[in-house]
């Protein structure tokens, strides 16, 4: 019974995706909606992403330094480990999981509130494709999400460098040498590819939970929680699959 419910929901999600691209909203209206979503979802996330990335980058560097107890292991590994952790996993995946909470709950609760207060019904009655009107601008805005992750990567490594150097764990030269060591450009491609896929998940899964919710204010809160759980689970699952496909073979 539960399995049937999950399959039904997945089918409904894909039907929603199809409907998003049907009957486009007028460009003059859509343009403003896209700018608004860029402001809400992208610009509005920069502060928290910058803060978390900088300090987690610092912690990664300190943790690595504290675990290098063998004097034969060179100190430049601190820079190397920080770069690898931040670029490959922390920035694309864990920032996305955090964004599933921040952006995702915002998307679910704003669309859910529109559902509860009949604003979505009002759009439909007017003849507006409400899914296109509400979700499409979010998808387009989140095409800029890789820029957020790019900033996160930079600040993560910068945080590691500052913690490493000013904490007395390594010298600046050693850290920078380590950060440049064995650099594989495809790792950046891999990180941004998965970021783009996570961006689509971040835009659509919370929208799905908000759009199809039923009930009142309590259910809006519940839908936000469920949306966070499912977005995180999907991101982590896709992370595994993409890593296996792009790096594992």
């Amino acid at each position: 019974m539960m399995l049937i419910r999950y399959i039904t929901q997945i089918g409904r999600y894909f039907l929603m995706l199809k409907e998003i691209f049907n009957k486009q909203t007028k460009w003059s209206v859509m343009r403003n909606l896209i700018f608004k979503e860029i402001d809400d979802l992208i610009i509005g996330s920069l502060g928290i992403v910058a803060f978390i990335s900088f300090f987690v980058g610092g912690v990664v560097a300190i943790q690595t330094a504290l675990n290098l107890t063998n004097p034969l292991i060179p100190k430049y590994l601190i820079g190397f480990a920080t770069r690898q952790s931040v670029i490959l996993e922390f920035a694309p995946t864990f920032i996305s999981v955090i964004m599933a909470g921040k952006m995702g709950s915002f998307i679910t609760s704003s669309i859910g509130t529109m559902r509860v207060t009949e604003q979505i019904d009002a759009l439909e009655v007017m003849g507006v494709n409400s899914l296109n009107y509400l979700v499409f601008p979010k998808i387009i805005a989140l095409l800029l999400y890789p820029f957020v992750i790019g900033i996160s990567m930079f600040l993560g490594v910068l945080g590691g460098w500052m913690a490493g150097v000013y904490g007395g764990f390594t010298s600046s030269d050693e850290f920078i040498n380590g950060a440049q060591l064995d650099f594989i450009p495809f790792h950046i491609v891999y990180a941004f590819l998965k970021t783009l896929i996570f961006a689509m998940l971040l835009a659509t899964i919370p929208s799905f939970h908000g759009y199809y919710m039923k009930g009142g204010a309590l259910e809006v809160g519940r839908a936000s929680t469920v949306s966070f759980v499912w977005t995180s689970v999907t991101i982590i699952t896709f992370n595994y699959i993409l890593t296996q496909l792009l790096l594992g073979s």
Partner: peptide
């Protein structure tokens, strides 16, 4: 069609 909803349904 014009519709007046019970809760007005104005866009916040």
């Amino acid at each position: 069609i014009g519709m007046v909803f019970q809760g007005s349904a104005l866009f916040d």
